[in-house]
């Protein structure tokens, strides 16, 4: 059920500041696409334009087109709330709702739409937690608060929460940057499994991670601090890391700057 994304001419602003400039790319369904680049290059901002979260930030606005299977997310009459149901998101820091139990956290998105029987809800929660490789660790304490879990578990709980509503696309904004190596590995394995069902876009600071998990990699850069970020190139991950077509990409990957 995953969908393709076609971005054309996308520019995003914070107030009068242009954060990213004229970005176009295509993202295939059932792939993992990684965004890499130095801090401030706009890769997170770009990610947030893909489910209309950018405009939540005060002063945030967007020009250009994002097509989700031929439908423009920024077209007239599009409801951003529906967009976010189709395009789920996992954040940098794990953010389970602190006042809800593990079960309620996973069910939170489902409950928004109401018409669920208690038993159905339980099935979906179990399926989602299994999908996030968390079921075995939490099945005995579903009614305990989610904030009692470890950081890595919390992040997988957030993934379970995101996939419970069956989105078509899953956006991940540096999902492992707050986690230890073992939890990171667990999430990376999970990403490999999830791409069978979802189109995954992941922002990462860690180039090894991009190389490990992604099929395609996009490199973003900015000319100088205060300048808008730009897409330098997007290509198969293997190519980006072995033989990129732009010099700047090679410089960045080989650690000559950034």
């Amino acid at each position: 059920m995953s969908k393709r994304i076609d971005v054309s001419g996308l520019t995003a602003y914070y107030g009068s500041h242009k954060a990213i400039d004229d970005i176009s790319m295509n993202i295939e369904p059932r792939t993992v696409t990684a965004f890499i680049g130095p801090s401030g290059c706009g890769k997170s901002t770009f990610l947030r334009t893909l489910n209309r979260m950018h405009e939540v930030t005060p002063g945030g606005r967007v020009e250009g087109k994002v097509l989700l299977d031929d439908e423009n997310l920024y077209g007239a009459g599009i409801d951003p709330v529906s967009v976010r149901r189709e395009v789920g998101m996992v954040f940098q820091r794990p953010n389970p709702f602190p006042t809800m139990s593990i079960f309620d956290n996973v069910a939170a998105g489902l409950k928004l739409n109401g018409n669920f029987k208690k038993s159905e809800l339980g099935d979906v929660v179990e399926k989602s937690l299994k999908g996030a490789n968390l079921w075995n660790e939490v099945k005995d304490r579903l009614n305990k608060p989610g904030s009692g879990l470890s950081g890595g578990q919390q992040q997988r709980l957030c993934i379970a929460r995101a996939i419970a509503v069956e989105p078509k696309v899953l956006l991940m904004d540096e999902p492992c940057s707050a986690l230890d190596p073992i939890s990171t590995l667990a999430i990376e394995d999970l990403i490999g499994e999830l791409k069978e069902r979802f189109t995954i876009v992941i922002v990462t600071h860690n180039m090894q991670q991009a190389a490990r998990v992604s099929d395609r990699t996009a490199f973003f850069n900015l000319a100088a601090v205060g300048q808008p970020g730009k897409l330098i190139e997007i290509d198969d991950t293997e190519r980006i890391f072995s033989n990129p077509s732009v010099q700047a990409t090679e410089d960045y990957i080989s650690g000559r700057f950034g």
Partner: peptide, 17 residues
């Protein structure tokens, strides 16, 4: 209205005031 506007019934497009 949404059905008329799009080629097919869209999930993203809610009728809105």
């Amino acid at each position: 209205t949404a059905a008329v506007a799009g080629k097919r019934t869209s999930t993203l497009q809610g009728a809105s005031l």
